[in-house]
């Protein structure tokens, strides 16, 4: 009981504090590749504090829906993260079918962000919303097929068990499927968090953006919420990958958390490396890569079902 509470407190603390660090790590890795010193590792935290104290400019065309976007964009990944086991087989909230709720909560966040973008009536933001939702249509089945592989292996529909320590026993026998899922989810991670090769978070040309162009009109605390929410979403996907690869339970709480934090940071470094070495995809080729992600995890499932 006490251990459970400790787990939950740690879970929530890490979920709230660690995510912006990932953005810092990615930025640092990219800077190193480019031969620059780059911003400090903790720069995203400073950015968030700065934004929280900034004034806002709100367009005259907007309604209350405009404010729904940032709040939902922060709240939904946070809630979804409660279902993901960060260490051992323990998640603060866990029940039969929570994997579906996790996927759909992210969908809710996306819907509200897109609606907020459309609320401004700007053509660029409409364009971003259209792209975001279009690509999500393909990314969601990819994520889902991967989850199906885990359901098949572990025979459970709770994320805490599916990504829990029992998964480790399946790596020797079903490693091929799990590697396929890993590849597929990494692609989904890059897409869902608008990373190169899908989207360039640092580009200055609105026409080529996907996610960033949707949030052009947000400013001040609302924009801070969006950035914070985005980093939590990134953390969520990174945690999924880490748990997929290292579903270990060492027996020591400190070591378990160290594995998780280390793993998540490694994912951030990997994203930084990909962003530094891979070119952006042409917009027309984006669906191709996501469909490939679907096919990868789909094939992983076929391997298990045959």
């Amino acid at each position: 009981m006490l251990l459970n509470i400790l787990h939950t407190v740690l879970h929530v603390t890490v979920a709230l504090t660690l995510p912006p660090l990932l953005l810092g790590v990615i930025g640092k890795v990219k800077a190193l590749f480019a031969g620059r010193v780059g911003p400090r590792l903790l720069q995203p935290y400073y950015d968030l504090f700065k934004l929280a104290r900034k004034g806002s400019v709100i367009s005259q065309t907007t309604t209350w829906v405009f404010h729904l976007g940032p709040v939902m964009g922060l709240v939904t990944p946070l809630l979804a993260l409660l279902f993901v086991p960060l260490v051992d087989s323990h998640a603060p909230v866990s029940f039969n079918g929570d994997l579906i709720l996790m996927v759909y909560l992210l969908g809710l966040g996306r819907f509200c962000t897109a609606s907020a973008a459309l609320d401004t009536g700007s053509s660029f933001e409409g364009m971003g919303a259209a792209r975001e939702l279009t690509f999500a249509c393909l990314a969601e089945p990819a994520l889902f097929l991967g989850l199906l592989v885990l359901v098949k292996l572990t025979g459970s529909m709770e994320l805490a068990t599916m990504l829990g320590s029992s998964l480790a026993g399946h790596w020797p026998t079903a490693g091929a499927s799990l590697v396929l899922v890993l590849l597929s989810w990494f692609i989904v991670l890059l897409l869902e968090n608008s990373r190169i090769p899908f989207d360039d978070p640092n580009t200055h040309l609105e026409l080529t953006m996907i996610h960033e162009v949707m949030v052009l009109d947000h400013s001040g605390p609302a924009f801070g919420m969006i950035l914070y929410g985005a980093s939590i979403k990134l953390f969520l996907f990174a945690a999924l990958l880490v748990r997929l690869v290292m579903p270990v339970s060492t027996g020591s709480l400190a070591l378990d958390w160290a594995v998780l934090v280390g793993g998540v940071l490694i994912v951030a470094v990997a994203i930084g490396v990909v962003e530094s070495t891979v070119a952006r995809l042409r917009m027309t080729h984006v669906p191709l890569l996501i469909v490939a992600a679907c096919l990868l995890s789909g094939f992983g499932l076929v391997l298990l079902l045959r």
Binding site: G107, L118, L133, P141, L148
Partner: peptide, 24 residues
Amino acid sequence: PALALVGALAAACFAKAYGTVFLG
């Protein structure tokens, strides 16, 4: 996964309908 696809497509469709009719 087909149902997941349907859900995501429906979200896109209603963002479009709601955005075009009520927002902007």
